[in-house]
Write a protein that binds this DNA or RNA. Structure first.
Lengths: 333, 333
DNA sequence: AGAGTTTGAGCAAACGTTGTCAAGTAAACC
DNA sequence: GGTTTACTTGACAACGTTTGCTCAAACTCT
């Protein structure tokens, strides 16, 4: 609390001027080996740590990156955040997180972080901010968006092909002989959800299976909503032999609904999820799913941000979404 | 990027001195209603946001709290971090996270965060830093520790009674008539793991069930290790009718091991976990577990930190660890 | 040996705030 | 009407850095 060592202290101790110490630290100018020796010695001895606030004030950059998150409590979100954190680990930047789950409106939040903390860049995870606002924002700051494709900002977006993911998941079921395939959607306002649904429809179409909207029910990405969705589906009385859920959590909820009804997975019903959460490998039975590389995406976002901050234009990375075939899917009987 | 409005800009625009603007903002001194009006108007019009770096430099506080985390990728950890984040939401402080999973040694990491960012307080989540170091650290900074009890720093620790949790879990199985109860431990160097194991032994003892070390196998908190543990247990050839796992993840792994062997839960084997992760409510069958209020603990840590920063000594909160009885446990046959 | 050139290091002015101090003004007292 | 009192405001020096400019000393060259 008390004795914080400043650059000036070091200078005094080494008998040189603050400028010299600063220059040694930043490697800006050359100094005699002896002077350098002495100063470095004092830095070590006094355990000097530069004050980032002062540096930031002077240099006009805070060395922080604001991460704006939206949905809370979702494993997808966690994975991404962890990746972001990891990606900044060996850099001079630190991420600071601003959750969007407060009362304050999203935009206010953005402004606040941007403004007060003078963040050097922003990473936006997920969904709710309108595209135009993001484009506007990108004009005045380094911006990276993960989990979403904003037109005009494609280079700064980290995303996956959700349509393809939905297609592959559904195709897998079709290949197993299923014809009556239900779908539990994500939150309808969510673009990912729409795309996955698109993929589902396209797969159906390409196999010439007529689309039946009675087999589609709206979910909310939670386990609970998956469970409800299956009950809705069942109560409608339509026969189906497989379900594609827009995320793993809903698949788990759906699984429980079937368990309660005594319907066996995969014997009676095949089940496919989306996300590839770690733990669904240990579901009963292990869940077939589309893997979304959340951690890698977060890490990629951090790297991209760093490159952008250094003024480099890195190659755009695309992330694959492999189908992980496990034990929740089987041939249709 | 370009036009950042400073306090001086506002002052100029309003035709007053910077000091006056500063005073209005901080409410330090009184000003005429008209001046205030005018200044507030300009602040609004120019959309001025104070520069926290400059404020921090001047006031000697950075308005940031360093959060040092250790284990990564664990749901327990996630929950706590979310709670911390949430707890700081409405305060003027922002948490910055420093993961302890890097190559750099833990202590170095602490020093770095503390030193460079001039954090006003620290929250340490979990386990590996030696007690004496923490006590030392607490001398020079505001420190809160979550998930651990450090002697001499009890007031600043947020923790649960793991012995009691382990006891309750085991007692529940005993009450159901089980006598041959296996235990899968956590990482042996982890204090929580030791305590839960203690609780297990105490429950056994209080029911006069002899302790059999053949029924105890070491786990590593992961699903995979839970699965292995059950296989080890089974290969030893000792009969048992119930398993208490030191966390939910291992319980899920154990569950899968039983599934593979065709052993039914809870019909053949009763299973109890620890943590109360959201998703195990949707396990097959829903898992009986001891709930550890991770989110609340994180939130509590943030609140405690805030109080400490304000110089208040808040009452120490203790967190309950209720037993959540679900469907993975049944009467012994 | 003197002029030109390099080199090492210091001075001082910023960066955007805050807080102390004093100055200025208007109201209140005798 | 002069003096005290209360109140509002401005000047200015910090906080810990970085950086352009200056300058002395040490080199190079003819």
């Amino acid at each position: 609390m008390a004795e914080v060592v400043t650059l000036t202290d070091v200078a005094r101790a080494a008998g040189v001027s603050p400028s010299t110490v600063s220059r040694i630290l930043s490697g800006t100018a050359r100094v005699t080996p002896e002077t350098r020796q002495k100063v470095m010695g004092e830095i070590e001895r006094l355990d000097y740590q530069p004050n980032i606030l002062a540096q930031g004030l002077k240099r006009g950059q805070s060395m922080t990156v604001g991460v704006l998150t939206q949905e809370l409590n979702s494993p997808f979100f966690d994975g991404t955040v962890q990746g972001i954190e990891f990606g900044f680990e060996d850099s001079d930047y630190d991420p600071i997180f601003a959750g969007g789950h407060s009362r304050k409106s999203e935009e206010k939040r953005v402004l606040e972080v941007l403004g007060r903390r003078r963040v050097d860049a922003m990473i936006i995870v997920g969904g709710f901010l309108p595209d135009p606002l993001l484009v506007e924002l990108a004009r005045s700051t380094v911006l990276v968006i993960v989990g979403r494709k904003v037109s005009g900002l494609e280079e700064q977006c980290i995303y996956i092909d959700n349509v393809k993911g939905g297609f592959d998941a559904t195709k897998h079921l079709i290949d197993l002989g299923h014809r009556r395939i239900a779908h539990i959607t994500g939150i309808p306002s969510n673009l990912d959800a729409i795309d996955r649904f698109q993929g589902y429809r396209q797969a159906l179409e390409s196999a010439r299976i007529p689309y039946d909207h009675q087999l589609v029910v709206e979910g909310a990405y939670t386990e609970q909503s998956g469970l409800f969705a299956v009950e809705t589906l069942l109560s409608r009385g339509n026969r189906f032999t497989a379900v594609f859920c827009a995320n793993d959590q809903m698949a788990c909820g759906a699984r429980l609904a079937f368990y309660r009804r005594g319907m066996r997975v995969p014997d009676d019903i095949s089940l496919v999820g989306f996300d590839g959460l770690q733990y669904v490998l240990f579901a009963i039975p292990p869940l077939t799913t589309i893997r979304q590389p959340m951690f890698e995406m977060g890490q990629g976002a951090a790297r991209l941000t760093l490159s952008l901050l250094e003024g480099k234009k890195p190659p755009h990375i695309t992330f694959a979404t492999p189908l992980l075939v496990r034990e929740s899917t089987a041939m249709a009987r």
